[in-house]
Amino acid sequence: MSGLTILTLFVLAAFVGVEVVSKVSSTLHTPLMSGANAIHGIILVGAILVTAHATSPVLIALGGLATLLATVNLVGGFVVTDRMLEMFSGGRRRPAEEPVGSDAR
């Protein structure tokens, strides 16, 4: 990929990132942070790619370490976010607590 293509992707993704969370309600700050945290665990793909090509034992060991750490970030991140939201929706399911569709604009 050319540098300019990468820069274009970077700028466009930054705008999308700002746009999708711009209307978040303050009750969702922590789950949203946790969900975003899980998403950057996708560095696992990078860790797997560098480990795949490694030939010296030291680099293979470091690659295994990076893969392990990234897996903890990715898998743990999504599981803990789900648990947060499970409790969240449990408390919210009381009837008429929040008008249905208030956030569906």
């Binding site: 990929m1 992707l9 930054a14 990132g17 975003a36 950057h40 996708i42 560095i43 793909v45």
Partner: peptide
């Protein structure tokens, strides 16, 4: 040169800053 890492990381960087 991995577009998925680039896009996912940028999304989190931008939304995380706003958050």
């Amino acid at each position: 040169s991995n577009t998925l890492l680039l896009v996912a990381g940028t999304l989190v960087g931008a939304s995380g800053t706003i958050l």
